[in-house]
Design a protein around this nucleic acid. Structure first.
Lengths: 199, 199, 199, 199
DNA sequence: ACTTAAGCGAGACGGTACGTCTCGTCTTAAC
DNA sequence: GTTAAGACGAGACGTACCGTCTCGCTTAAGT
């Protein structure tokens, strides 16, 4: 009696992937990242905390990098730079997005890891670049290009300006970890557009 | 006359440290760093390649970080920023030193490691900061302060400008690894001093 | 109805222990014991010869002593003393078991180790006593008690006679290693029962 | 003519061996043996406790065994069996010497080690046999031979009886460590000479 | 008194094995 | 046919002693 209706998905028969496990794994990753940082995160610990076997993790994620990126996906999301017609407003928004993202606790850990494991884990670096960096970078580059076309910026090379922005924010927020991020956006705008003039 | 001049060092007698071993170890570290990178460097491999026992390494260096920093000491050395009286010349030199150091193969590996293991190996980070970063940073800061006093720079905060310089160079040379470092110094100078004026 | 009968063991599912590894380890132990003796037996060598990781050995055996005792279990097995009704036959059998076991190549090595590591590895000594010594000793003691009750033996204390038997056999076979074991049993019987009388 | 005969040894002049060091080393060995046992005795610890360098130890003693035997020399000394004309008195003395020596704290440790390291440190075993075992054994053997000649003993083979005595005492005092050594001598005499008869 | 040569402490050295750890894969039975 | 459990081979970790080797100082016998 009461035969269960059975599989509704197109996937072949078999037991379907457990959404419970997936959620538990990604949650465990987030918790452990915040607790111990990326370098001290072990698959073993994730499995244990999620009540899951290591094999299950390895089946769905090839590397620690992939796993971490997926776990922090929403925290890292940065969006794209708007096109308001006002260069300063656009770039202001871009820098704001950057600072905002870089200072979220979880995101900062993951972004730092993604940037700095470039040599040892190229896979993670690529994934990070393709999914998070390039989209924003492209739109930021366009914004800078528009600004250049209007003659608003002091330097001609948008890629260079992008590196100035990203590099400076990275340095301030993730390397030096100074708390003085207050003036950062203003200072950066000043360096890019020249000193603010009253309109 | 017969005055015996005694040992001045605090260390007692004992067999003196083998310079051969020390040199072999540091050389092995350098070779392995260039071959496999910092993350894949193991003490075991260093010992084997240097023809040395692990205990000898652990006797003289407490952590992998210390060992690596000493092995790359000369490659990392960056000196201090000159004081020529011309702000642009001073900062030009500072940026040159930075780019020069960051693009040496061995130095780039070690510096990258020193910066990025900050969270997992605080010891190495501190050592790196104290021995290599701060001295240069202090003199660079003075140079920027002198420039500010002369009204040469567009921003008032030397610490901010320092982060712009270091962050941008770091981003370009170690993160993006683009080969387009040609205009980097000029662009940075432009961003700091404003567009170059013909005199 | 339809009661599912669950697993009765406390251990949960998981991958079962590899019998291949277990057999290879115990074999390697036996070979190395015969080749190098107990003192020169290293876990490292066992692992290598068995094609097994050290962790696998440590997972199942806490000490070298446990491992060796299990590897030689069958060689050491000595059984119990029979009860034929004839004291002399019983004790003859007991001494025969002892000599037989003490002169097997592998058993002699392991027994010697078990006895002599008593101070440095109490664990092994206890294990050895509980699993091999006491059962035999109890039955031998009963045999001697029966003999005493019949007035067949010259001394009243079975424990003392047991030590005479074991001590003498140990001394002859393992300490002096003399080949003159021929008369040993007869001599011991003579000492215990008095000179043989022709019936 | 006036040549001073002096040095009889082949060794040339030089600084003579330090008696202070020698005494300190042997004392340290004794203390550490009592504290940690033979197996846990390390040359390193002896050197440290004696305030002596390891090289000094290795210069005068080739193996741990030699060192330990010399350190315990006086404790181990057992003398020889007397010849009183009364077999029972002689053997009684012999057994008494044995039990007495085997139950001294330091001697028991060293003798146990000497007997049981036979396989792994043949050097120590030989030394022990030559210096301590054989002399006593020879005189005990003679005593048993005299007893046999007088028809006092139940077994003909003195070597066998020796193994009975030594084996039983070893078993009782060092292996079983039972405190019931009281009747040991009497029991042994009973087994060798037959039940005591009132004369 | 001076020379000389071995003894000495200190302790660094190349080795070997220890017992622990984490990795990523593999193997079952359960569902 | 995915899951949890967990055993597995691999191999680095940092530690402990081994027995040998430099050092530079000390110490007495022989000049």
């Amino acid at each position: 009696m009461g035969r269960k209706e059975k599989v509704e998905k197109g996937r072949s028969s078999g037991r379907p992937r457990s959404e419970r496990s997936k959620a538990a794994i990604l949650l465990a990753v987030r918790e452990l990242l915040l607790k111990d940082g990326y370098a001290n995160l072990t698959i073993e610990a994730v499995a244990q905390r999620a009540g899951v076997s290591k094999a299950t993790i390895y089946r769905w994620w090839k590397t620690k990098g992939e796993l971490v990126l997926e776990a922090a996906e929403q925290e890292i999301a940065i969006g794209t730079v708007p096109d308001t017609g006002d260069s300063r407003v656009d770039i202001d928004a871009a820098i704001g997005q950057l600072i905002d993202t870089f200072t979220r606790p979880l995101a900062s850990i993951v972004i730092f890891a993604a940037i700095t494991t470039g040599s040892s884990d190229p896979n993670m670096a690529h994934l990070f670049r393709d999914r998070f960096v390039y989209p924003w970078r492209v739109s930021a580059c366009e914004a800078l290009e528009r600004a250049r076309a209007r003659g608003d910026v002091l330097a001609d090379d948008p890629q260079f300006l992008l590196d100035v922005i990203v590099g400076t924010v990275f340095q301030r927020t993730l390397v030096m970890k100074g708390p003085m991020i207050d003036g950062l956006k203003g200072n950066l705008l000043g360096v890019i557009f020249g000193p603010k003039r009253s309109t």
